[in-house]
Nucleic acid binder design. Sequence first.
DNA 1: TTGTGACTAAAAGTCCGTT
DNA 2: CAACGGACTTTTAGTCACA
Lengths: 69, 69
Amino acid sequence: MSDLRTILAENLRRLRKDKGLSQEDLAGLAEVDRTYISLIERKRNSISLDKLEQIATALNVEAYLLIKP
Amino acid sequence: MSDLRTILAENLRRLRKDKGLSQEDLAGLAEVDRTYISLIERKRNSISLDKLEQIATALNVEAYLLIKP
DNA sequence: TTGTGACTAAAAGTCCGTT
DNA sequence: CAACGGACTTTTAGTCACA
């Protein structure tokens, strides 16, 4: 199974909420589509490294922390 | 210049060499084409989370370590 | 043993919406 | 505010012959 999708979904949602951001807020900061954040949090797709980096930057965290259990 | 593609390329090559594996050996273990490993090490594409996990499993390491600086 | 261009198939990612 | 759908474009996945 895709454990990493679950880990990412959980980490992302936690970090996003901690910063008081909506999916749309984060999408704006990361310059990705609004629906895309939703897809990740629902584990519907296998995000690319480039997008992972964009989102990590928007959240001000190191990218690897997004997929660290 | 330490974007995720570069970090992954370096970590992957280092881990692979440490285990004395050729690109072809690793490809076999990870069940991907040999040239695909070559593409990653040359930073040609932004690999997906699923593929990252597949390769991490083949190397017996946690996936996040592949993209940790 | 690895790098590379060329190519098709598949999946990511966007943009319009509605519930 | 978030889940979700459809239709679309862009990028990755995957493979080959050859250098």
